[in-house]
Structures are given as C-alpha cells and as structure tokens.
Amino acid sequence: MIFSRFFRRRTPPTPQLESGLRRSRQGIFRQIVQLFERNQVDEELFEDLEALLIQADLGVATTEALLERLRERVRRGEVRDPVEAREALRDEMVALLESAMRNRRVKIYQRGVPFVSLVVGVNGTGKTTTIAKLARYHLDQGRSVLLVAADTFRAAAIDQLKAWGERLGVPVIAHAPGADPGAVVFDGMQAAHNRGIDVLLIDTAGRLHTKSNLMAELAKIRRVIQRHVPEAPHEVLLVIDATTGQNGLNQARVFTEAAGVTDIALTKLDGTAKGGIAFAIARELGIPIAYVGTGEKPTDFAEFDPEAYVDALFFGDEED
C-alpha cells in the first residue's frame, strides 16, 4: 500500500492485497517518471502536468494556480530542466497544504473535560469507519473513549457503530432509530462527564449539504454540545472520500458554515483515487487535513503529513 512507508501502520497488509495495489501504483508512477524524462521545460510538459493534476481531482482553478507559480519560477530562471520543475511543483504542492495546516487548532486534551469530536459529512464517505479508527487512535494514546450514535436516520447505522464499539471495547451511547440526534448527543455529553471520559466521538447521519433542514440539525447538535462544554466541539471533522470530485468544495463550504468544520479526514486513499480535492479545499477555504484513512481496518489510519502525501501520490520514490 502506498501509504505503508510513510504513515505509521500497525498491521502489515496481506500479501495478496499488496500485489493488487502495487499494479495500479506502478501505473501512476511510470506515467510520472516519463513525464520528467524529457529534455526541456516546454509547453508540452505543462500540458502533461495539467493532465496529471486534473486527473487527480485538484480542479481547474487549483491546477492553474499551481502551474502559474511554476511558470513564474521558470521565468525567473529558478527552474531550468524537468527535474527542477518536478522539485518545484512538489514544493508548491506541499506549501499549499502546509499553509492550510497553519490553521490547525492545537488539540488539547484536558483531564475532567471531554475532548469532543463531531464527525460530519455527506452519505457514504466513511464517517462510521473513521470514528472506529479515531477511537482506536485515541485508545492507543491512552485516552478513554465514548462513542455517540447520533445517526438515528440510516437503517442499522446504530448497529454498525455498536458493532465497532464491541470490537474495540468502547462504550456506545445510543437511542432508538428515529430518535432526536440532539437528545442522543445530550445524553452522550452527560455520560462523558459522569464517567470522566477523555474523548467523545459523535457519529452523525450522512447528509447532503444541499438539505438546509439537515444542516440546521447540525447547528443544533453544536448548541447542545456547547451547553455542556462552551469551548466544544474541539474538533469538527468533515469526512471526505478520496474519490470525491469538485463537489467536495461545495461540501466543505456548506458544512463549514453550518457546523464550523475544523479539519478534514480524507478517506479511501487505498484505491487509485488521489483525493486532490483536498488541495482545492486547502487553497480556497484554508481547511487543513488532519487524518487519512487507507483501508477498512481501524489501524488503516494516520495523522496527515503533507510531504509524505504529495510524495506518495504524485511523485513516488526512487526505489519504485
């Protein structure tokens, strides 16, 4: 798996799976290596770079912005050959992500006050799986965790979270299907207080950002949380799936307005999708990526590292 080398990973992937993934990865790398094998920095190179970035879902505007910066460096004489162009583009891409990382709030875990993480997103991006991974991550850091099943809408969503709770040995606060999510969150906050829990992870129902009533519900959940802990939620994670196209930008914009998104969790990076929309989100909205998900197991998860990400997805490493 691409990320195995760059991000901490606790269980080795099965050999079968690894071979399948390597094939697709080699395809990408070969393409990129060939890209920089030519002799000079010319229009054709720029065209190929455009193709590469757009096919990674960075979007037209972000691609143009990155290439314009590269052209500027060529004009200033800093970049003379394709190898330098490659390094320059890499730097620009990392810098773009890092500038958004500067907006990250420091995560402070205090004794006695639960760290509240609200997990939101459109349907099917992997919110519940991300919660399981986050739970595992916090457990590994020695923090106690409580899960709250505020997705009372989708059939069996509560069961799905409970199943994870059982596997991870983490308690789950849940009501009956169809219950008011605000009420579940209220109980969750109270339970976290009573039990002296360190980290409270709230799973919300997937919702398209175009449904204003459902977005209003998120604002309400926020208010319920703040009644208990005024500075919470400490983290509002928008889960975005790496296959998402340009619509991801709209998602980020509207979810931020409604729920105050603080970070992005980029999931499903174990496929061939590159999650380039995260660049567009970082550029236009300045929202940082906090975590990446690279598979279905709770351990397929890591904190985000811009350099490792850019290298793994776009430039590969020399050994390959």
Partner: peptide, 9 residues
C-alpha cells in the same frame, strides 16, 4: 459526486 476516478472504477 465522484471525480476523475469514476473512469478507473
């Protein structure tokens, strides 16, 4: 909402 990956899939 799928992006460019739709083709590979």
């Amino acid at each position: 909402m799928t992006g460019q990956e739709a083709v590979n899939v």
